[in-house]
Design a protein around this nucleic acid. Structure first.
Lengths: 210, 210, 210, 210
DNA sequence: CATGAATGAGCCTTCATTCAT
DNA sequence: GATGAATGAAGGCTCATTCAT
């Protein structure tokens, strides 16, 4: 029932809507208006408001899973990775392109909101998120280990801990960004990354002489 | 109207309730039952459901503000701080005692949910949260600077960045804990803290041989 | 929750309403107006529209069970019973009084509608109706057997069949009354009863000399 | 619009559907699926859901009118009629054949439901039903009178009352069958018919010794 | 102070009907 | 003829809020 294209379009628009608006505080009239269709059309493609939300989040999870786990290169310099981690615009553009929508500057932060509230309301999402984050941390760990083998990083680096640290710090920085306007992660983020780099690099000075 | 004590008690119980239950998915009948009073009683002390929520969160913010900014010691060893960061039970007990309630193991994570959804529903909370996090990061920065002056930490440490890093990493680790059961922050957290310590300590080896 | 009296009143009014109006074609606004309360009040006492309907019908079933099975006399002349069967007004008044409402002339016929549609929508009602009709037929059979023993009826009367016949005929006559205005059961009913009487009486002539 | 044959086929299928399913609880998607066509096709042949229902029931009424009034033989032995009244399967097969569908054992009972709910929803059906039942009772009366003239029945038989009794009892027995599983009309029905026979036959004994 | 019955606006959902293809 | 995507009015139900007691 319903063309698959239209359904995907609705999922994407709903994703954008739900990342900006509270699920419970939004009524279907507003949602329908935001998606550019009528209430009935939504029910033509989705069985309920919950279903629409879950389809949207699962769509996002699919894309992020591709992008951040399967899609990551196996062997890039760790230095570049850390330097680009807080080039938010680049990351955002990449994700937006993968989703096929035009993103905005709060997109990343909003996904956090989507995930935290989503798992509270729909515990079945937890497994997929677990997979996503575990996949991301695994990929990072592989990259770090490759860096150690390659001689870019010190031999005594605890790759798993660093991978977890980078991931948790990144998410936490975005989270703080939602709360705090006084601590700008676009400024502090790179400083932290540079500090992490100095700790794990085999030759921090040689690389840092800018 | 109503004794101030009773009102504070209701705020605390409501806080516990809202940290475990979604605001919009809870109705006042359930809330009243959870608080051990009737609906009418709630309206004696609070002007609305929103008001009850805001009073609760503001109460939590007051306590956390005291505990994590004004209440922090001016001069403790950074090493101990990092070692205790993921002694979640201790932290939790301290916060629960400060609130005068019995906490549970998910309390911290739940406050994150409370804050993230709370700011989405009530943007006026953002300023207070900003104050809390900024205060916390400032305090940490002061502690780190004191450590530098004291000679515990290296002179080239970027205190602001490290304070931000610790805070963001901590929040991020708790957040990931809500999503991922495969990455246990009670195990990985201390490994990361130890890694941070080795990076900033003036004499990491000397301190570690205990 | 809610006073038991108010709830019983609502059940009775709903009974009257549903016996006159189609369940699915009535919306809760109309029902509420007919019951003299608001929609919310109904949901204060009943958990759903279905619940309201079932409570009403079960209330009716309780009263009819008392009246037509437990409440029937053990030993009355069969002749009088047959003569009064189609004194609808008397029967109706008795049922209305037992229900505590003022009845109207279509009350009996309407209960049939209530039962037939009720069992289609709520199969769980079937057992209670089975009990009611079986109880009624049993009581009739007992009365007939008492008549045989007493010498009022012929010894070769098939008491069970006659009890079933009277019951089925009675219901059928009311049912036809719902469809057909040309066959008036208040006229034909007594003629049939007199015919049945002549068949089962030990001495039809002696009794019939009017 | 639409071939007349297709329309008749749809009416028949709809009849079967509505005799098994509640009108208001069935939606047009389910109905269309049950009829083996699309929603659009239904609207080609019928102007509305109501129209489809009414066309179906009127079709049934046409067939029953033919079968039970005009179609009845003018002069058959009353004894055989009474003996066959509760040969439900035979009756059902006859009606199903007349309709051109395959019937099932609940068909008769279901038509009762169809008629009772149908007249509540569409009062305009009442007249046709009145005609059907009156026609049937008239035919029965004629048969009984023919039996009297022929000498099969007693001269003092109240033909109108007996015709009404048989009809009402028959409908009532089917109705009770819908409510009560403990009183089987296939067993009790023939016993009642035999009792009626003994009452109206000119020579009950002579006829019964077979 | 406290209660909880009652209110009614607003929500999610259904579904008969329409209409572009 | 036939389709099924889209519409939008209407319905069941929830629940924050009020108020008579």
């Amino acid at each position: 029932m319903g063309s698959s294209d239209t359904k995907k379009q609705l999922e994407l628009k709903a994703l954008q809507f739900f990342s900006e608006n509270d699920f419970d505080r939004s009524n279907l009239n507003d949602i329908a208006r935001a998606l550019g269709v009528t209430k009935g059309a939504i029910y033509h493609y989705f069985s309920s408001k919950d279903d629409l939300f879950l389809a949207s989040v699962n769509h996002l999870l699919d894309v992020m899973m591709d992008m951040f786990t399967k899609g990551l290169p196996r062997d890039i310099p760790v230095k570049g990775l850390l330097e680009n981690l807080f080039q938010m615009e680049e990351m955002m553009i990449a994700l937006a392109r993968a989703l096929g929508i035009k993103g905005d500057v709060d997109m990343y932060r909003n996904t956090l909101y989507l995930f935290l509230t989503g798992t509270k309301k729909f515990p079945q999402l937890t497994d997929r998120l677990d997979e996503l984050y575990t996949g991301f941390i695994d990929s990072l760990e592989n990259l770090l280990n490759a860096g150690i083998v390659r001689g870019e990083l010190r031999r005594d680096v605890d790759a798993r801990a660093i991978a977890f640290e980078i991931t948790a710090f990144y998410e936490g920085a975005l989270l703080l960004g939602a709360f705090s306007h006084k601590n700008d992660y676009t400024v502090l983020g790179p400083r932290v990354c540079s500090s992490i780099w100095r700790r794990i690099a085999a030759d921090p000075e040689g690389e840092e002489d800018e």
